[in-house]
Nucleic acid binder design. Structure first.
Lengths: 247, 247
DNA sequence: CGGACTCTTGAAATTATTCAATCGGGGTGG
DNA sequence: CCACCCCGATTGAATAATTTCAAGAGTCCG
């Protein structure tokens, strides 16, 4: 399977076969990384961007006690630090969660691509804006939802992102994160995550164990999360949760 | 003063005079808007993007009870919904906070610009990534800080953004938001905002009243906020708060 | 078997929300 | 001019959500 196979997969803007081939020509190196490895530290200068081919990664910011707030969760097909190309240096750190395979695309090659293929360039821009849209939805999650809603929202989003790349059937999917990881994602303590997971389980909504998720009641999950997949810019939203802010 | 005067002002990537002139040629219309007016609703298709020339605006997402989470706060010089150009439709709403002057740039004109001036195009991309960087820092704010820290963080950020455009001297600046607005920004109730503002006042850190902010102890504000302006990509960071996550 | 790590639970303390009132200033109509 | 009203700010008290501290239990693996 090609390295760019899952990039922009199922989105309102996606790649043509030519564009996919074009992008793949730019890959300078494919690398296999162990789990829980930091690739890039906050403030580090970058000369290449990273396409995640297999595995899961996170981007995070640390507080003055070294505790992490995860600002993005990445699945295969994500151009994890494409924004490092225009920005030059990252304002956050980047690490693997699981063992991962990544493809590196040198910024010099992207530079040329913008001139040669402006249409493709705009799709790259689109891709970084998709990340921004997810950031916004995460702000909603942290700002307006409490524990159970936050976890439910993360599960609903992750399911929606894994479906187009064939990693979720809408009921079960692999999610190799422990409770401490979840805590860093949804902004609560790992102890509280534990209690939240119990209520989700006891309420028959979802069962989350290290390694995987089983969604028991999709509708209630969506409602609890107030999840509306608009912001994922999917071609055909797999879930049809109630729209927000339209009453 | 020109309508693009403050765009990317003081950033690591900024405009040349030619580029500024080029952008201004693309403006199709300048409009004056009353305070508290919604310009764009979530999911609405866009044909032009909005440069904020004067006044303050917010972008927000509503929950199922219609309560807002503000996802971005905009100051003069911000290209408020430039991301609407590649994205086509917005995943959030856009409204004025105060009376405002905006300049509209049709997407068709931006389309041409990408071909004619790819360098400038990349700066536009950079500008949207700056917004994403701010989203990430807001995620840190909501995920890792509690009441007082969140408010302090917002004040520190706003000061840092207002300085390059001459709207803050680092001690006093106009901030025409009430406590309910602040609540929607920092993700706590307006009643709790009230109590937080009192403690900031009583601790001699800052005085916030509708209309303006007076910073009494900048160092303590920065520390409380764990504020590090890295993510604003300023040419010369005005504040030198302690770096995070580097010990 | 002994760690090391993760998950789990309890209890107390802290933080934030909710509900209910009150206060205060700026307008407005009588 | 003044009573009235509205909106935002403020406060108190009860409740709920979350964190912190402390301790066990389960599991995997060398």
């Amino acid at each position: 399977m090609s390295v760019m196979q899952n990039f922009l997969c199922g989105r309102t803007v996606s790649l043509t076969e030519d564009e996919r081939a074009h992008l793949e020509q730019l890959v300078s190196e494919i690398r296999r990384l162990p789990a829980r490895t930091t690739l890039v530290d906050r403030n580090e200068a970058l000369r290449a961007s990273t396409m995640l081919v297999e595995g899961f990664m996170v981007r995070f910011i640390e507080d003055d006690g070294g505790r992490r707030q995860v600002v993005a969760f990445h699945v295969p097909g994500d151009f994890v630090d494409l924004h490092g190309f225009p920005l030059q240096r990252l304002d956050h750190s980047l690490a693997t969660l699981t063992e991962a395979e990544v493809a590196l695309v040198p910024h010099a090659a992207l530079e040329r691509l913008l001139i040669e293929a402006p249409d493709l360039g705009r799709k790259l821009w689109f891709s970084t804006l998709l990340d921004a849209a997810m950031h916004r939805e995460w702000l909603f999650r942290l700002g307006r939802l409490e524990g159970p809603g936050r976890v439910a929202h993360f599960l609903a989003e992750t399911d929606a992102r894994l479906r187009p790349i064939g990693l979720s059937d809408g009921r079960n999917f692999a999610l190799p994160v422990n409770q401490a990881d979840l805590a860093e994602i949804v902004g609560i303590t790992s102890i509280h995550v534990n209690r939240v997971l119990r209520t989700l389980r006891e309420d028959g909504i979802a069962i989350i164990r290290r390694g995987g998720v089983e969604i028991l009641d999709f509708d209630r999950l969506i409602r609890l999360a107030q999840f509306d997949p608009t912001y994922l810019y999917l071609k055909s939203p797999t879930s049809t949760g109630p729209r927000r802010g339209t009453e």
